[in-house]
């Protein structure tokens, strides 16, 4: 794998995580528990979509075959998406959403922070912009996790159950492959071992505030990176791509 191939794959992965998680949050639009949370969620969803657009546009330039952001988002099959399994997990209840967001945002924020120092200028620029958004998302979602965990007996039980179910998907974020290795060696990209250590401390602190125990789960499920997605991913992609598949080339 060449440097450019690794950079392209890495940029697409960043775009895929952002797009798929953005799509999951969009599913919640008009279903917020309170008007104010509804607005916050829609803002977050659009932040992710905006980040996906930046990553995909740049990926198109790296690839140099004339593909644009829409081609990556709407004309690839689910097996071609390389997002983490964590971000494609169905919304479930509000506690499930918050746990998923906290686990991912706390990784993604660290990843972006490391990318601001990488040698690829464009990626570093996007990371600066996206990093500020994710820093705020994590502030919001981690406060919610503390409210739920340290709230009523029912909210505590539901948050515990959500954490237990989603924890097994967190490990994939730190399981680097050739793409991560090349990005680190050739572009001064993120060091996943460092990030995992920082993530563990950060998440442990949030869970401590939330009076939630770190799950004793050693089983890690991966495969998203290779396009092996969970069952729900196909439904998400089908809904997301419906318009472009049914009416190819449709524009506003």
């Amino acid at each position: 794998m060449t440097k450019d191939e690794a950079l392209l794959a890495y940029t697409l992965r960043l775009g895929d995580n952002a797009l798929i998680l953005g799509q999951r949050l969009i599913e919640l639009v008009a279903a917020g528990p309170e008007l104010e949370e509804e607005l916050a969620n829609a803002n977050f969803a659009l932040d992710f979509i905006g980040q996906a657009r930046m990553f995909y546009s740049y990926a198109g330039e790296i690839e140099g075959k004339g593909r644009c952001e829409d081609d990556f988002a709407f004309l690839r099959d689910d097996r071609e998406f390389a997002n983490f399994l964590l971000v494609e997990q169905p919304n479930g209840h509000f506690g499930d959403v918050i746990v998923r967001q906290v686990l991912f945002d706390s990784f993604y924020g660290l990843q972006l922070e490391a990318l601001t120092k990488c040698k690829d200028k464009r990626l570093a620029e996007i990371a600066v912009r996206a990093g500020k958004e994710i820093c705020y998302h994590l502030r919001h979602t981690s406060q919610w996790l503390v409210r739920l965990g340290d709230g009523t007996a029912e909210s505590h039980a539901r948050a515990t159950e959500a954490l237990g179910r989603l924890w097994r998907y967190a490990g994939e974020m730190f399981a680097g492959d050739e793409v991560d290795i090349i990005l680190q060696s050739a572009f001064d990209g993120p060091d996943l071992e460092t990030i995992e250590a920082q993530w563990s401390l950060k998440v442990a602190a949030i869970l401590d505030d939330a009076t939630l125990a770190i799950p004793d789960e050693k089983w890690i499920i991966g495969g998203g990176r290779q396009g092996h997605h969970s069952e729900s991913m196909g439904f998400l992609v089908a809904e997301m791509q419906f318009l472009q598949r049914a009416y190819a080339g449709a524009t506003w």
């Binding site: 916050a40 803002n43 919001h140 406060q143």
Partner: peptide, 11 residues
């Protein structure tokens, strides 16, 4: 209070 500040930002 913290939630109010967050929501004020988002709203």
């Amino acid at each position: 209070d913290q939630m109010a500040l967050d929501y004020a930002r988002d709203t």
